[in-house]
Design a protein around this nucleic acid. Structure first.
Length: 666
DNA sequence: TCAATCCGTATC
DNA sequence: ATACGGATTGAC
């Protein structure tokens, strides 16, 4: 006698015989629960949150059991659950509510969101009784000293609020040089002392390692798990289960960790929310910060949005009063900040273009030399390769250099005029200093080439690179030149003696909505690794000192910059001041969807703009942008989802992609 | 008049 | 996808 007796033999469970199931079918018009009967023999296992198999439209599909009910509103006859896949309740009711809210916000289906929220099952791991919780190896950051939050007037009261279980919500501007992983661990520990759980989201594996170690140091062993996107399916599921089974009160991880179930959630944390890896690339493309804030709202728990930089979205949280600011006083800030200076025009260079010092603006060169002589490492932030190829003389192949700052020249987009990758100045009438030729050709100068040149500029000093292929985590406190691309800067023990920011092209040559914010973020994140000025730390930015982001950097005032940015976006009607959505696909499909969509009043329709075809294959696609005020954001998402549902119900052949808050705007 | 087939629609 | 119902068609 097996568990799957013939259909006729099955009896419905006595209590709550109806199961509401979210079936794993991505069609938007089927985005609602379907009711099934629970067989008496499945009664015990068929609890809310388990995976089930059901017959749906003649097919076996998997799904999640959302809830049990006494009766169904369905008119026709109910089918039985085919089977309960396992009694493991992987879907917490809190996560279902969150997933629903996120699906609504992003015009997506619950099914799509649940795919992001619950990792694939691994039966063998599930069978093992007690999940193994890894212990991180020590190294890197010093153990946290108590009182780190004392540097911020609002810090100690905030920790008290966490310990008392209050729903304290804060935007935290970290001081330069801050041991932020330790601060986050302390906030987590305060919450845990109050008997509540914590979810922490960071951008990448390096940040995750640092927080992992800080949590270990503050909480002790086995009190948290780290969910790394790079883990294999078995280990990923093992750690998910450790959280789901409430074996640990704290979960830290990259963006998917925002969905981790924990018992009695008390605090959610996101670090560096401006990093674009927080945007989920799979449909419906939710952003980890938005998921996290929604979660805090629904769970009525505390939230901490921290970083050296501040996004427009974080600024909006402050300006609407949703969150309070945690920032240091100017006096403390001045004591902790490195000395900051811009450098632009440099008459020295023109006089001596062939000399070693011509490889860098002379202020950079002098600052770096001083730091190296003092035995300190120097960080050089350079542009990532591949965005803008640099150029060389078409005749003699001498790299074309900026007459002002000696940075590499590049040709951006359709313009013929070469522009400096470092300081952004255009060089209209360029002629090669070596041969006098005026024609240029594309070449590639990346971090490695820059490193070689710097190696020649500082003979006898080791040069190390950290970039996409090979990322250094830390460097020792000794004289070395460290060339890194944005986001790959190693942490220096004791801090860098000098930080040189040569990555200014992003600010000056990109039309992207977030170009200035992103540049600011990169500069602050690198500058935060410098020693404080009293210990000799200096930051030199190769850019025009009158530009607003440069001003904000020199004063270390991310709040001022974010407020300015947000005000500008309000004026222009850009997110987050307004809500935008994009509809992408073949022109007929896009037109069809928009014709069906019952868009809210005063929806602005912008476009279409052609989309660059990936690989050149496939028919041409276009993109339309829709814009509404924040008050109509929900109505816009609903209208788009509904229209997508109508299209999928009538089996429209051509698909369209709907993105609310698209990551790439202009 | 009845069965075979087509089309649209729901999917529990 | 598949399956079901109702409409449509065509042969007797």
């Amino acid at each position: 006698m097996g568990t799957k007796g013939a259909r006729a033999e099955r009896e419905p469970a006595e209590r709550l015989p109806v199961a509401r199931v979210c079936v794993d079918v991505p069609l938007p018009h089927l985005d609602r629960p379907f009711d099934y009967l629970v067989a008496a023999e499945d009664d015990e296992a068929a609890q809310p949150g388990v995976r089930v198999k059901v017959r749906f439209a003649g097919q076996q599909v998997s799904g999640f059991l959302l809830e049990r009910a006494e009766a169904s509103g369905h008119q026709g006859r109910l089918a039985y659950l085919e089977r309960v896949v396992s009694a493991e309740r992987v879907l917490d009711p809190e996560i279902v509510r969150l997933a629903r809210a996120v699906a609504q916000r992003y015009a997506g289906s619950l099914t799509d969101v649940l795919r992001l929220a619950v990792p694939p099952r691994h039966a063998r791991v599930e069978a093992q009784a007690v999940p193994v919780v890894e212990t991180p190896e020590s190294g890197g950051d010093p153990p946290p000293a108590p009182g780190g939050w004392d540097a911020y007037p609002a810090g100690p009261p905030y920790l008290r609020a966490l310990e008392e279980g209050r729903a304290a919500r804060a935007v935290w501007s970290a001081l330069p040089g801050e041991q932020w992983p330790a601060r986050i661990a302390e906030a987590a520990a305060a919450t845990v002392r109050g008997g509540r759980g914590v979810v922490i989201v960071v951008a990448d594996a390096r940040d995750l390692d640092r927080v992992d170690r800080a949590l270990e140091a503050v909480l002790g062993a086995g009190r948290h798990v780290a969910l790394n996107a790079a883990l294999g399916p078995a280990e990923r599921y093992r750690r998910f289960l450790a959280a789901s089974r409430h074996r640990v009160p704290v979960v830290v991880g990259t963006r998917a960790a925002v969905w981790a179930p924990v018992a009695r959630l008390g605090l959610v944390v996101i670090w560096d929310d401006g990093d674009d890896v927080h945007a989920e690339p799979r449909t419906p493309y939710p952003h980890a910060r938005e998921v996290l804030l929604t979660r805090a709202q629904l769970a009525d728990c505390a939230a901490l949005v921290g970083g050296f930089a501040r996004t427009g979205e974080a600024q909006l949280l402050l300006e609407t009063g949703w969150a309070r600011e945690i920032a240091a006083d100017r006096v403390v800030l001045r004591r902790r900040s490195p000395g900051m200076a811009p450098t632009g025009d440099d008459p020295q260079l023109a006089r001596d273009p062939g000399a070693v010092s011509a490889r860098l603006p002379s202020l950079c060169w002098q600052t770096a030399r001083q730091a190296l002589q003092a035995g300190a490492p120097v960080l050089v932030q350079v542009p990532r390769r591949g965005y803008l190829p640099s150029v060389a003389c078409a005749e003699c192949r001498t790299p074309a250099r900026c007459p002002h700052c000696a940075g590499p020249l590049g040709l951006s987009g359709a313009r013929d005029v070469p522009v400096c990758h470092w300081c952004g100045r255009a060089s209209a009438a360029y002629s090669c200093p070596a041969c006098g030729a005026q024609r240029l050709r594309a070449s590639v100068t990346g971090a490695r080439r820059t490193a070689e040149e710097l190696g020649r500029a500082f003979p006898g000093v080791p040069v190390r690179t950290s970039g996409r292929d090979e990322i250094l985590t830390t460097v020792p406190a000794e004289a070395a030149v460290v060339v890194a691309t944005p986001g790959a800067e190693p942490v220096a023990e004791g801090g860098y003696g000098a930080v040189l920011l040569l990555d200014t092209w992003a600010l000056l040559s990109r039309s992207d909505l977030r170009a200035a914010e992103e540049t600011m973020r990169r500069w602050l994140n690198a500058s935060a690794l410098a020693r404080p000025a009293p210990e000799g730390g200096r930051v030199i930015v190769v850019a025009d000192g009158s530009l607003a982001p440069v001003q904000a950097l020199l004063r270390w005032d991310p709040g001022w910059f974010a407020a300015r940015e947000l005000a500008e976006r309000r004026e222009l009607g850009f997110p987050p001041a307004a809500r935008m959505a994009s509809v992408t696909g073949q022109p007929e499909a896009v037109a069809d969807l928009l014709a069906l969509a019952r868009l809210p009043e005063e929806t602005e329709i912008l476009g279409p703009v052609p989309v660059d075809e990936r690989d050149g294959a496939g028919p041409a696609q276009e993109r339309m942008l829709l814009r509404v005020g924040r008050g109509r954001a929900a109505a816009l998402a609903h209208a788009l989802h509904e229209a997508a549902g109508v299209r999928s119900a009538k089996k429209a052949a051509l698909s369209v992609r709907i993105q609310v808050d698209p990551a790439d705007l202009f």
